[in-house]
Nucleic acid binder design. Sequence first.
DNA 1: CAAGACATGTAAGGGGTTACATGATTTC
DNA 2: GAAATCATGTAACCCCTTACATGTCTTG
Lengths: 199, 199
Amino acid sequence: MMMDVRTLSLGLLMHGPMSGYEIKKRLETSFRHFVSAGYGSIYPALADLAAAGLVTVRAIEQDKRPHKKLYAITPAGRERLVADLMATPPRHRVRSEFLVLMYFAHLLPPEKVEQALDAMIDSWERWLGEDIQSCEESGEAAPGVPLTPGMEFAVGYGRAVLTAALAYVKQGRGPFLAALAAEGRDGRAAASPAARAAE
Amino acid sequence: MMMDVRTLSLGLLMHGPMSGYEIKKRLETSFRHFVSAGYGSIYPALADLAAAGLVTVRAIEQDKRPHKKLYAITPAGRERLVADLMATPPRHRVRSEFLVLMYFAHLLPPEKVEQALDAMIDSWERWLGEDIQSCEESGEAAPGVPLTPGMEFAVGYGRAVLTAALAYVKQGRGPFLAALAAEGRDGRAAASPAARAAE
DNA sequence: CAAGACATGTAAGGGGTTACATGATTTC
DNA sequence: GAAATCATGTAACCCCTTACATGTCTTG
C-alpha cells in the first residue's frame, strides 16, 4: 500500500479548495524535495476521488482565463486521508541517474562528467535560492500563520540535505575531475595491481 | 530514455561475470544510496540482454548450492553501456513517504509520528554503520585497487548526505514532537489568526 | 527447529511518465 | 512574435513491485 497521488491530493486539499493545476504547483513548491507528479496522474486521481465522494467538484467560469474546476475535500475524504496516512509505511528512497553516471565516470568522456556535475550544481543552487520565497508562499491559506511544525520539519529537512549535497558536490568536483584525468593519462593500465607494482 | 535495470546490470557486469543474485547483492551494497531493483526486474533484464547479445550466459552446477547462471558482458554490451550512459540525463529524485507523513503530522496521533521518526533514525544509523565495511568489499574484483574516483565520489555522496539527514532528524526530533504536542493541547484553535490574537 | 542465505524464475497488476490535443492571455 | 502562464484532460506504454513457486544447506 504505497502512497499514491490520490492521497497526496487529498492532503493538499486540507489547505482549502484547489484545482488540479494548483495542486501541481503546490507539489512543485512545498513537496518538491520528496515527491513529484505530472498532470497525467493528478487529473485522473482527482476524478477518482470525486467518483468516490472523497472530494466535491465545482466548475468555475473565468473571463480572460480558462475555466477551472475547484475540488474540495469532504468529511469522508478527511477520514480516508488519515486512514491512508496511518497505513503508509515511512519509506524514503532516492533514484539518481546522476550518481550512477558518476559511479561509471571512468567509462565516459570527462566532458560528459563535468557537464553532469555542473548541471547538478546549477539546479541545486537555483533550488536553494527559490526555497526561501517558496516557503513563505506555500503555507496555510491564512496569511499570518505560516506552517505547522510538521511542515517546517519537512521543509527544513529538504533544505538541510540539499545544502549538504551541494557542499559535497562543489567541494568534490575539482579533486574528482583531477583524479579522473590522472587515471585517464595512465591509459587504464594503472587499474591493475601488476601495473602499479611495476612503477 | 530513463535508466533501467538493463543498463545498471550491464554496468555491474563491468566488474566481472556475475549471477542475477549477485547483481542484486551488489545493488544493495554499492548502489543502495541511489538505486534499487528486485529480482522481478533483474532476471527479465538479464534474459533480455542475453537475447540481444549484450551478455553471454554460462550455467554453473554447484554441489551443496543451487545451480547458477554466470552472465558476462560482451564487447557489444560494453558499447551499448557507454551509449546508454551518454544518453542518460543526470536526474536525481527523492520519493519519501516518510516526509509526507511528517508534513501531515498534525493530522496523525503523536505516537505514529514518533514511531516513524524513530524507525527512520534506526534504519539510517544501521545503514551508516554497515557502510564502512560494505565500502571495502564492494569495489573492483582486484584486491589491492579498491575504487575508481567515480565510485568513491558516489559512495562519499551517499555517506555525506545520509550523515546530514540523520543529524537533522535526530536534532529535530525532540523540538518537533514538543511543538506538535503544544499545538495539540490548544485544540487546534491556535491555528487561526483570530484565536492567536485573542491570547 | 526456525530463520536466513543461496538461487532462479513467472505473472499479474498497478502506477507513473510521456506525448498528444487545444486555446486564450500576458509578458519579454 | 515567441515563450510562458493558465487550464484540463486522454491514452499508450513502460517499468517496477509484489506475490507466487521451489528446494537445499547453514547458522543461530
